[in-house]
Structure formats: C-alpha cells, structure tokens
C-alpha cells in the first residue's frame, strides 16, 4: 500500500524523504514514478511525497545571469518561455520531444534528471548548457555541476534526505549556438535510441552531450576552435572524442549501430549548433 503525502515546504519534504522506516519517493509530474508504482513499492511501506505544493518553491526564474528551473517546472512551461528558447535552443528542442503533449504537461525538468535514465532527453542538453544542480538537505544546500550529478542508471548524487530544488543555467556568452538531435524508432512519441546535444560556445569551447550511449549521460569537450565545417578535420576529432561512448545492445538498437549513430548525430548537431550561432548573429 502507498501513502500519499503532500509536503508544504522544502524542510517538510526533506524530513519525510529522509526517514529510514519508509520507502519514500518524491512525486513531481509522476510520468515515470507512477508507471508500475504498485509493483515497485510492493515490499516496503511506501510513501509518495508530492512536491507540487511547496510554499517556498520558486518556479521558472529568468535573470540577467541565467535561468533557474525550479522543481515544478514542466517541459511545457520550459518550451513556452521565449527567453529560454532564445538562450538554450538545445534544451528547448530536447524538452519539446519528451513524450507526448500530455506527458510534457506533467513531466518536469528536475524529475527528468532525478529519474537519471541513460536515455533522458534533457540531460545531454543540460550538460552542454553548463547546468548546475541545487540540492537541499537538512544541513543546507550544495550545488553540483550536472556533469557530476549522474552516477549510474537511475542513480544520482542526490541521496536519501536530499532534494533537488532547482537546475540553474548560466546565461550563454554572446555568439553561442546549440542544438539537439536524436534518433528514434518511429517519428511520433518515442524514447531516444541515441541523442546528442551540441553547443558551440561564444568563447570558443565546443561541447557535446550524449544520451543513451553509456550508463549515464556524457559530456564531451572538443578542442576549441575545431573547424566544424571541414569534415576532414572534424571526423578524426569526433572519432577520438566519442570513444567514451560505450553503448549496449538492447531491444531498441545494437551497440554498433548506436556507436555509428552517435557520430552521425554529433556531426549533425554540431552543424545545427553552428547554424544557430549564425542565426543569432544575423
């Protein structure tokens, strides 16, 4: 049996989530948590802690220095925000293909990263946008770069008694472009077989975020100033950089296909990121 508990403040939520006598799970959009909930909570007294009514929670905050995505911000909220769309194209493209319209009306960005699926759509984008994850606990707050947040499939550095309260994105330096590409088995609603986010930063850094090719989403740096338009230059750079990808074979694809596709999508995402830079400048 499952007990439903509606937390009214962060501290209240932390107290329940930290209890050792119950199996407490944080509930945001519920689009992952509620699939097969009964089966998973079968052996423990389960508590579902609903975080959608926290009095001290700030939703989407846009400031000069960047954007703060509070824990109840849905994919739909994110996609609808014009500043987010202008500053973080890769993230908006990724958030826009998470599930269906009805899923995006419920699924949250914070929930998506805390679920820590290797195939998470938003994680590769958040990686290249340099996101930081704000984690609260009874002892206070800590901030973790998202590149250090994911530990293993379904496991993050956010432990028992802790709660992710926001994802914070620095404002991109002028001249930055980004894009998201993914491969699916059909054109409508699907999970990613492989996904890649690319950012060409205004300061010359070039980064790739990779999804579904390793136990956790990966962040890869390409040498600054790599000529992305020249395949003869780019291809060996990608070969070296993408060696970190260690995809598995499963019902969705074989490992060698994923390996080839991450390279193909990386090249496409980099090109699209470069194009978005040019659009911004124009």
């Amino acid at each position: 049996m499952v007990t439903y508990y509606k937390a009214h403040a962060v501290a209240d939520a932390l107290e329940v989530l930290g209890r050792k006598d119950v199996d407490a799970r944080a509930l945001l959009g519920g689009t992952d948590l509620l699939v097969g909930l009964d089966d998973r909570l079968d052996s423990a007294p389960g508590v579902v802690v609903d975080l959608k009514g926290l009095a001290d929670e700030t939703p989407l905050a846009v400031e000069d220095s960047g954007v703060r995505i509070g824990l109840t911000v849905t994919m739909a909220d994110l996609v609808a925000n014009p500043t987010v769309a202008a500053w973080y194209p890769a993230l908006v493209q990724a958030a826009g293909v998470v599930g269906s319209v009805a899923i995006r009306n419920r699924a949250t960005v914070v929930g998506n990263i805390c679920n820590a699926s290797p195939a998470s759509d938003t994680a590769p984008a958040l990686l290249v946008h340099g996101a930081n994850v704000r984690i609260a606990s009874a002892d206070g707050e800590r901030v973790v770069p998202i590149s250090e947040f994911f530990v293993a499939p379904r496991v993050t550095t956010c432990g028992r008694g802790e709660l992710v309260t926001a994802v914070e994105l620095p404002r991109p330096v002028p001249g930055t472009g980004s894009a998201f590409q993914r491969l699916t088995r059909r054109w409508g609603v699907d999970l990613a077989t492989v996904s890649v986010a690319a950012a060409v930063h205004g300061d010359g850094r070039i980064q790739l975020g990779l999804g579904a090719v390793a136990p956790t989403p990966l962040l890869v740096d390409l040498p600054a100033g790599t000529d992305l338009a020249d395949r003869a230059v780019l291809d060996p750079v990608l070969d070296e950089a993408l060696a970190v990808a260690t995809p598995i074979s499963d019902i969705r694809a074989a490992a060698d296909y994923r390996t080839a596709m991450v390279r193909e999508l990386a090249a496409r995402a980099l090109q699209a990121a470069l194009d978005s830079t040019r659009r911004t400048q124009a």
Partner: peptide, 16 residues
C-alpha cells in the same frame, strides 16, 4: 516476451 508494453512494441502514430 521482451516487449509487451506499448513503450517497446511500437505501432504507428499520427507522425508515422
């Protein structure tokens, strides 16, 4: 059966 669920038994959607 590895793919009984609609997550991995894919059927056409509007976009297919």
């Amino acid at each position: 059966l590895l793919n009984p669920s609609a997550i991995d038994y894919r059927v056409p959607t509007y976009k297919d």
